[in-house]
Amino acid sequence: MKYLIVGLGNIGPEYHETRHNIGFMVLDALAKASNIVFSDKRYGFVADMPLKGRRLILLKPSTFMNLSGNAVRYYMQKEQIPLENVLVIVDDIALPFGRLQLKPRGSDAGHNGLKHIAAILGTQEYSRLRFGIGSDYPRGFQVQYVLSPFEIEEQKSMPERLETAGEIIKSFCLAGIDITMNKYNKK
């Protein structure tokens, strides 16, 4: 059984470890903990992760956030992965920093990466793991905020939050979305 795990972010050193790149950070932490490395492939950086008889294809799109749907569609088709086995990791300003929320579907909530994925796939019926980045910014400064690095206090708790995100991803693939939501969405 195959799963496509997509971490959203933007490529380039200027975006490295910014709030908008939390999807990349989650997959980087999962790959490091699993002793696997990413390869530069078509539409993104890809790593193959075995997990108890399952195959997880970790994807960090290189298409930039606003064109993420192209990479998702390509790997879904190339690897013949059904929509129910796709999980997208995304930053969410509506959630306090570090809060993790798994959802089986939902709106794009103004997130351009999710908006493009929905437009390309023709549906919003795909699972997503929302990673709260908080919303401590003055009105009109959302773009600057999401493209800024995390605060020192946030960085201190980041390893534990990234580890928990990895546990959620594994549980999604092994136990399914309902059991995983019941276990982790309350934390």
Rank of each mutant, 00 (worst) to 15 (best):
T123M: 09
V143L: 15
V86Y: 09
G166P: 13
Y75M: 02
A71N: 04
E153T: 14
G140L: 13
L121W: 06
G106E: 04
T123Y: 00
G134D: 03
K170P: 09
C173A: 15
I117D: 00
P96T: 02
K170N: 12
L87F: 04
P138Q: 15
H116C: 07
Y75G: 04
L95N: 05
E154Y: 01
L121G: 04
Q144H: 15
K170M: 12
I89N: 02
M76R: 07
M158A: 08
L87V: 06
D92V: 07
H116S: 10
K115I: 00
F141E: 15
M158E: 02
E125I: 08
A175E: 15
A165M: 10
Y145T: 12
S107C: 02
E79C: 04
K156N: 11
I120N: 05
G113I: 12
D108N: 13
N85R: 10
C173P: 08
Q144P: 01
V143P: 05
E153P: 06
R99V: 14
E154S: 13
K115Y: 01
L114S: 06
P104Q: 12
A109H: 13
L162D: 14
T123E: 05
F141W: 07
E84V: 06
P96I: 04
E125P: 09
P138N: 14
L100E: 07
L162E: 15
I89H: 00
A119L: 02
E160P: 00
F172T: 06
E153W: 07
E125D: 15
L162W: 03
P82L: 09
G98I: 07
L100Q: 03
I81Y: 01
T123W: 00
Y145L: 06
C173D: 00
Y75D: 03
I133T: 02
A109E: 11
Q142V: 15
T164V: 14
D136L: 14
E167T: 02
V72T: 00
M76L: 14
D108F: 11
L95H: 05
G113A: 12
P96S: 07
F141M: 15
G132Y: 02
E151M: 05
E84G: 05
S107H: 09
Q124V: 09
S171I: 06
M158D: 00
L174K: 05
G106T: 03
P159G: 08
Y137E: 05
N85M: 03
E154P: 13
P138T: 13
V146L: 13
L87M: 11
I89L: 14
F150S: 00
L95D: 06
G134K: 08
D91Y: 10
I117K: 01
P82A: 09
E153A: 15
R99G: 00
F172Q: 09
G166K: 12
D108E: 06
A118V: 09
A165W: 05
R128N: 08
G140R: 11
P104K: 13
V88F: 04
S157T: 05
L95M: 05
R128E: 00
